[in-house]
């Protein structure tokens, strides 16, 4: 038997197993958490009228940090429950895929703050974040189920459509950055979480 053939087959099996393990690792609660945090942040921004670029940045950066920490904690808890390694090769691969677009998005968010950008700029940054988040999901989707890639495409396509609609003056979204963020990072995550929850199979018992 050709050892390369055997090695390739084993690698394929391992990759498929790891991808499956990631899927089982509670994507639904992570999406729910992100959704609830997104809607809460949007509500805070609107109710407290955080209408300055710095306040917008601080609110949404804190929300993103909370979402990341919460997602890691949920994934870790699930891994411990299933007696699996948390920081496994697939988790590392997904993290590596997510990082470049997310860090670029972060840079695009911080940069206008140095230029003392007005609150109007927040809408464009929200669009950039939606776009980069879509890129991140799409990249991570290569190591996860296809649904994540489609979810990423939804963000990318929506951001492109909003940019076109704004440029063509079909919509007026000035000063509506919190609404846009709340919809994309809150409502869409909640909807995807609900979809996963309803379609996910429970862990089988022998």
């Amino acid at each position: 038997m050709n050892p390369n053939w055997a090695e390739e087959n084993l690698q394929t099996i391992r990759a498929l197993m790891e991808r499956s393990a990631l899927y089982r690792r509670a994507l639904a609660p992570i999406m729910f958490l992100a959704g609830v945090l997104g809607i809460t942040a949007a509500a805070i921004g609107l109710l407290l009228q955080l209408n300055s670029y710095l306040a917008f940045l601080a609110l949404w950066f804190s929300t993103a940090m909370l979402a990341v920490v919460g997602a890691l904690l949920i994934a870790r808890r699930q891994a411990l429950k299933d007696k699996e390694v948390f920081w496994s090769p697939p988790t590392r691969r997904v993290t590596q895929a997510l990082l470049p677009p997310l860090l670029t998005g972060m840079f695009f968010g911080v940069f206008p703050a140095y230029l003392h950008a007005p609150f109007e700029a927040a809408f464009f940054i929200a669009l950039a974040w939606i776009l980069f988040y879509g890129f991140a999901l799409h990249a991570a989707g290569f190591f996860m189920p296809r649904g994540i890639r489609l979810f990423g495409w939804l963000f990318i396509a929506s951001a492109c459509l909003l940019i076109c609609a704004y440029a063509a003056e079909w919509i007026d979204l000035d000063n509506k950055a919190h609404w846009v963020m709340g919809f994309f990072f809150g409502v869409l995550h909640l909807a995807y979480g609900a979809y996963l929850f309803l379609t996910e199979k429970k862990n089988p018992v022998a």
């Binding site: 050892p3 084993l10 862990n203």
Partner: peptide, 22 residues
């Protein structure tokens, strides 16, 4: 049909062993 936790563990160990042999 689905794999149980015990089945997954056993199969992972089996794959590890095969990889070692290869």
């Amino acid at each position: 049909c689905s794999l149980t936790a015990a089945g997954r563990k056993a199969f992972t160990e089996y794959i590890n062993l095969l990889e070692k042999i290869v």
